[in-house]
């Protein structure tokens, strides 16, 4: 190609008025062996562009089917409903059954006797504890007799 033409194209190129086809011509010219010496400075530029366009994306893209997301969301909703329902039934059933087993008396006489019996048992157990404390008095007595003199 004539040098004049290339120079013209270059002028247009730097004003961004060249078409893609004309830019390809320039790239082809600068890729050839005989570049005019005064245009040598443009060679790296037009050599770089095609070379830079050869890089490739080598990584694979993880393409998960998108429906899985919705499925997981619904699964968690279902799970929480089950847990809530379980807690509700558990508390509803366990409370009345515990209350029923305590038992009650209808006759006040019987109730009185039973209460006395229960209190008796309680005081007896308390007294066994007190009995074992009895001999502390003895210890106290001996201490006073020793330290008085």
């Amino acid at each position: 190609m004539e040098l004049k033409q290339i120079e013209n194209l270059l002028d247009k190129y730097f004003e961004s008025e060249t078409s893609i086809a004309e830019e390809r011509e320039l790239k082809a010219y600068f890729a050839s062996q005989d570049v005019a010496p005064h245009l040598e400075q443009y060679r790296p530029m037009f050599g770089y562009f095609p070379q830079s366009g050869t890089q490739q994306f080598s990584k694979t893209v993880p393409l998960k089917p998108g429906k899985q997301k919705k499925y997981v969301a619904w699964l968690s909703v279902a799970a929480s409903v089950v847990v809530l329902f379980g807690m509700f039934t558990f508390f509803n059933n366990s409370r009345p059954s515990a209350g029923q087993e305590l038992g009650t008396y209808n006759d006040p006489e019987v109730a009185f006797r039973e209460t006395q019996k229960a209190l008796d048992m309680l005081s007896k157990n308390v007294n066994t504890g007190v009995n074992s404390m009895e001999y502390i008095h003895k210890y106290e007595e001996t201490r006073t007799t020793i330290f008085k003199h």
Binding site: R43, P44, M45, G47, Y48, Q51, S52
Partner: peptide, 10 residues
């Protein structure tokens, strides 16, 4: 040399 000058352009 070319590669060097391409680096410069980059």
């Amino acid at each position: 040399e070319d590669r060097d000058s391409w680096d410069w352009v980059e």
